[in-house]
Simulated scan of single mutants.
Amino acid sequence: MLAALGWGAVAASSLVIGAVLGMIRKWHAGLVGGVLAFGAGALISSVAFELAQEGLTIAGPIPVAIGLAAGALAFFAANAAVNKIGGRSGGGAGGLPLALGSLLDGIPEQAVLGIGLAAGEGVSVALLVAIFISNLPEGIGSASDLRSAGKSPRAVLGLWCVVAVACMLATLGGYGLASVAGPEIKAGIDGFAAGALLVMLVDSMIPEATEKAGSRAGLVTVIGFAVAAALSNLV
């Protein structure tokens, strides 16, 4: 349990680091988009090699398929609710919708870390790197927007600390749930996280990377995939 909290804190810390970076200087959109693209590729690799493959190995295709559908639908519904209050566009009072959007992205990512630890596999370096990198642009972009809107550095940092703590607790939740579940349930949890991540990648992360990085986004995504796939098989 302490390991889940610790690794969850490491992964979530990049949200706060990104927020600090976003407040201290302006970042070129192309660079932010490139980091997003790299993180997207790394997360695609994690979905394939850390989630779907593991679920198929321990319980077969049916629990994974059910989990995929449930995760995709759950994220779609939650994302639609966040969008209604301006979560993806930056609207809303006090920057809260921006934080909700990042929290929504972070929950399935970080829950997977806890699932892997509960299974006795240790922390996935590839997934940890993917989460850490993908969090940075969210913190950078949103903190910059909030500062431009007149929010104080203390308020911006406090908001992102809350988001980071919530994401860290998602790692603990994944650990706790997987610790008491049988193989079929664990495979369903893997599928659920995979479905949620895939919808998040297609609906928000990849489009934003393409918008900011342009035609280079696809190439950088492949590089991110290759690096994470190598880490999955080497570590």
Rank of each mutant, 00 (worst) to 15 (best):
A78M: 14
A99Y: 09
N79E: 11
I85N: 09
S102A: 14
A78S: 11
G92H: 03
I85V: 11
S102G: 08
A93G: 07
S102H: 13
S102E: 05
L96V: 14
I107R: 14
I107S: 13
K84S: 08
A80M: 11
N79T: 04
L96W: 14
G87I: 11
G95W: 00
S102Y: 08
I85R: 10
L98M: 15
G94C: 13
G92Y: 05
G91Y: 00
A93M: 11
N79M: 02
A80S: 13
L104G: 05
L103K: 04
I107H: 13
N79P: 02
L98K: 05
R88T: 07
L100K: 07
G90Y: 00
A77D: 08
G95R: 00
G90C: 05
A93V: 14
K84L: 05
G87N: 04
R88Q: 04
F76M: 12
D105F: 15
S89H: 02
G92V: 00
A77R: 12
L100Y: 09
G94Q: 09
L103N: 03
R88C: 02
G106E: 02
G91L: 04
V82A: 10
F76Q: 05
A80L: 03
L103C: 07
R88E: 12
G101H: 13
A99K: 04
G95E: 04
N79W: 09
A80F: 13
G86P: 03
G95M: 01
I85T: 14
S102W: 06
A93E: 15
N79G: 06
L100F: 10
G101L: 10
L96E: 06
D105T: 08
D105L: 15
N83D: 07
G86T: 07
A77T: 01
G101E: 11
K84G: 03
G92C: 09
A99V: 01
A78E: 01
P97M: 04
I85F: 09
L98R: 08
L103D: 01
A77W: 12
I85H: 09
G87D: 12
A78T: 05
G94N: 15
G90K: 00
R88H: 02
S102C: 12
